[in-house]
Amino acid sequence: MDEDEILAGLLRHDQSALKALMNAHINSVYSLCSAIIGGTGSLEDIEECTSDVFYYAWKSVQKYDPKRASLRTWVLMLCKYVALDRRRSLTTKINQLPLNEDTISSKILETTFATIEERQE
């Protein structure tokens, strides 16, 4: 399927068009998700983000304007925003983790407390 056929199929909610879109762009979308999420998330986060991109493309294809960009460019721009939102969500969760002995190794705690005690002396 070429880009016009994929677009026409997506607008008709033809699942074969979604498969063709995924086959054509899965590597680029996965690579971009991986680059943006990076060390912030797990492989599962990257895979889920990749799936979300195609889900949002499927649901919002009516918003696509072929005069402004190619279908590939539109999907990658959608990917950029989905991945940035995912990274923001993941970093927010990391920053909200409570600090306790379960999340910090005892060795780090011992070193930190020893440094504080030395400064007080």
Rank of each mutant, 00 (worst) to 15 (best):
A8V: 07
S89Q: 14
Q120N: 14
K93T: 13
D85F: 06
K80Y: 09
I116S: 08
L18Q: 06
Q15E: 14
T92A: 12
H13A: 15
Q96W: 03
L11Y: 12
Q96R: 10
K93Y: 11
E117S: 13
L76Y: 00
C79H: 01
L84H: 15
R72E: 15
A17Q: 03
E44M: 06
V29K: 00
M1H: 08
E121P: 07
E118G: 03
F113S: 07
A17G: 02
L10M: 09
A57M: 01
Y64V: 02
R87S: 08
F113E: 13
A83M: 03
P66Q: 12
A35N: 13
H25I: 02
I6Q: 01
I94F: 09
E117R: 14
D85K: 08
L7A: 03
A24E: 04
R12A: 10
K63S: 12
K59M: 07
A35V: 06
D2Y: 02
I26T: 14
M1A: 11
K63I: 07
D85S: 07
P98K: 11
L99Q: 08
S34F: 10
R72A: 08
I104R: 02
N27A: 15
E3Q: 10
Y64W: 06
I26K: 11
A8G: 07
S105K: 08
S28R: 10
R12E: 12
N100L: 06
I36E: 00
T112M: 13
Y30C: 11
I108A: 11
N23S: 13
P98R: 08
I6F: 03
W74G: 04
D4A: 12
S42D: 05
V61L: 05
T115E: 09
Y56C: 09
A17V: 02
S105D: 11
N100G: 04
Y64R: 01
A8L: 09
I94D: 08
Y81L: 04
I104K: 00
S16C: 05
R119P: 02
N23K: 13
P66G: 04
D65H: 09
I108T: 11
T111D: 10
A24D: 04
L78G: 14
I108L: 13
G39L: 05
C33H: 00
D52F: 13
M77S: 10
S31N: 14
E48K: 10
R87W: 01
M1Y: 06
L43I: 14
N95M: 12
A57L: 01
E3R: 03
D52L: 13
L97S: 05
C33V: 01
S60R: 04
D102E: 11
I46Y: 00
I94K: 15
I37P: 00
I37C: 00
R119D: 15
A57K: 00
D52H: 09
K59G: 15
E48N: 12
L7P: 07
A20C: 04
C49A: 15
Y81H: 11
K59A: 14
R86A: 05
L90E: 05
D14H: 04
L71K: 00
S106C: 10
T103S: 12
E121I: 09
E121C: 13
K19S: 11
T50A: 10
L97Y: 04
Y81E: 04
Y55E: 06
I6R: 01
I26E: 15
W74R: 02
Y30V: 09
A57S: 11
S70R: 03
P98S: 13
G39R: 09
